[in-house]
């Protein structure tokens, strides 16, 4: 086995230094080393999307990259986005619309939805469905999620005037 490697990165605006095995993926690093368990592991092969986090501003599947690849990176998880208030309106819309049931896909779904709204502030329902298609939800049937993202987009546009 290859020896642990030191890494340094920023996670949710905090500097993190750790010794990790080269084979450790970013999802397991966040969950097992930093106790950031809001990043969920659903398939461990990059399909379900439950482990989606933001790395250097882009959403990625944290089960498909290694922790050592995040050297010097800026990583944001659902805990970070929640504490900063960046997606408070989106979270509230999900709550009001019951756009979550078991909640296991939800942190990653919020990540993906926010990613869409940052790049396309006025998506139609088909565009929302397309952008969220890398995130599986087995509970809701997606309709309520699309509603919540759509209403958040409209509210943000209104606020922006």
């Amino acid at each position: 086995m290859i020896a642990p490697v030191p890494i340094a990165l920023t996670v949710n605006h905090e500097r993190v230094e750790a010794l990790v095995l080269p084979r450790l993926n970013l999802a397991d690093f966040l969950r097992d080393h930093l106790s950031l368990t809001g990043t969920h592991v659903g398939c461990e092969h990059g399909v379900c999307g439950a482990c989606t986090v933001r790395v250097n501003g882009d959403i990625v599947r944290s089960c498909l990259i290694l922790a050592i690849q995040a050297e010097n990176a800026t990583v944001e998880t659902i805990e970070g986005l929640s504490d900063s208030g960046e997606i408070a309106d989106l979270q509230s819309a999900f709550h009001q619309r019951n756009a979550l049931q078991c909640g296991f896909c939800t942190p990653a779904m919020l990540m993906a939805a926010q990613d869409l709204l940052l790049t396309n502030p006025d998506p139609d329902r088909d565009q929302i469905r397309e952008h969220l298609s890398g995130n599986y939800c087995r509970c809701t049937g997606y309709h309520a999620i699309v509603d919540a993202v759509e209403s958040t987009a409209h509210a943000r546009l209104e606020r922006a005037g």
Partner: peptide
């Protein structure tokens, strides 16, 4: 009415057995 106590799931602060 909205379901109570969903904030923990929305913020990634639930406690699933895998956690």
């Amino acid at each position: 009415v909205p379901r109570p106590n969903l904030e923990r799931l929305l913020e990634g602060r639930g406690q699933y057995v895998s956690d």
